[in-house]
C-alpha cells in the first residue's frame, strides 16, 4: 500500500485521537499496542468475526506502526455500496474488496479493480509488506458463535508459506453489537492471541486444521466465565 507522509500522519492522528479514546470509552480496552505481533509486515491477522466493531477494535489495539499498514479484507458487494463508509474503508483502511458470488449482483461500474481476483490483490499487498486483517469465517455469523472457516485464508497462506498468520479470538463483541442490531451496548471484550502459524511444508488441509485447533483452543481458554450462557 503506497501512502505519503501526510496520509500516514492523518491516519495516526485519527487512531490516537479518535479511535483509541472511543474504543477505550465504549469497549473498555485500555491496553493498546499489547497484541504481540512483529512491527514489520507482511503478516495476516486472522480474528473471528462477530460484529462490525471487530475492525474498529483491531485498528485501535494493533501497534501504530502495524495499524497504518493494515488492510482490511471486506465484502465489496456490501461495504462498497454504503457511500461514506466505502470511501473511508477504501482510502483509510486500504480495503481489499471481495465480491461474493452468492451476494446480489453489483453494477459493473461500481466495482473497483475488477480485473484482479481478491486473492491476487491480497497477494500483492503481502508482497509489498502490508498487514492483512482477514476474517477467516468470512462473515459475522450468529452472535457469539464461531462459524466454519472458509478456504480463502488457506489458499492465501499456501501461496505465501513464509508469511505468519496470527489467529486472534475476540469474545463479547457479538453481545455489544450483533449483526441484527443498531444499538451499541458498551461491553468489554476478552481478547486472546496465539503464536503465529506458518504454512511452510504443510498441506492446505493441515493449515486449516491448525487454524481450527487454534480457535477452539482459545475459545476454551476464555470459556470458564461463559459456562451457563447456552
Amino acid at each position: 500500500m503506497k501512502q505519503g507522509p501526510i496520509k500516514k500522519t492523518i491516519k495516526i492522528l485519527l487512531i490516537v485521537l479518535v479511535l483509541r479514546p472511543l474504543v477505550w470509552l465504549l469497549l473498555g480496552v485500555n491496553r493498546f499496542s499489547h497484541l504481540k505481533v512483529p512491527l514489520e509486515g507482511p503478516m495476516i491477522i486472522a480474528p473471528n468475526h462477530n460484529s462490525h466493531l471487530d475492525t474498529l477494535l483491531f485498528y485501535a489495539i494493533l501497534p501504530l506502526k502495524v495499524a497504518v499498514r493494515t488492510r482490511v479484507i471486506a465484502a465489496g458487494d456490501y461495504f462498497g455500496n454504503i457511500p461514506i463508509v466505502s470511501w473511508f474503508l477504501f482510502s483509510f483502511c486500504g480495503m481489499v474488496p471481495v465480491y461474493r458470488p452468492q451476494a446480489p449482483k453489483v453494477e459493473e461500474g461500481k466495482k473497483i479493480k475488477t480485473s484482479k481476483s481478491p486473492l491476487e490483490s491480497m497477494g500483492e499487498a503481502l508482497s509489498e509488506g502490508d498487514v492483512l486483517l482477514l476474517y477467516p469465517e468470512g462473515t459475522r455469523g450468529k452472535p457469539q458463535e464461531r462459524s466454519a472457516l472458509r478456504k480463502g485464508i488457506v489458499y492465501l497462506a499456501c501461496s505465501f508459506p513464509e508469511v505468519p498468520i496470527y489467529p486472534v479470538f475476540v469474545k463479547g463483541l457479538g453481545k455489544a453489537l450483533p449483526r441484527d442490531s443498531f444499538i451499541l451496548i458498551p461491553l468489554i471484550p476478552v481478547i486472546e492471541i496465539q503464536d503465529p502459524i506458518f504454512a511452510k511444508d504443510k498441506t492446505q488441509r493441515m493449515v486449516l486444521e491448525e487454524l481450527e485447533n487454534a480457535y477452539s483452543g482459545m475459545e476454551r481458554k476464555v470459556a470458564p466465565q461463559d459456562r451457563r450462557e447456552k
Binding site: 473498555g28 463479547g172 450483533p178 444499538i183 451496548i185 461491553l187 468489554i188
Partner: peptide, 21 residues
C-alpha cells in the same frame, strides 16, 4: 460496563442492558 460484560445475559435482554446504561 464491567458488570454487564461479566454477567450472563440472554440475547433478548439487550434492550434492557441499554436501559440500565
Amino acid at each position: 460496563r464491567e458488570y454487564l460484560s461479566r454477567v450472563h445475559t440472554r440475547r433478548s435482554d439487550r434492550d434492557t442492558l441499554f436501559l440500565l446504561f
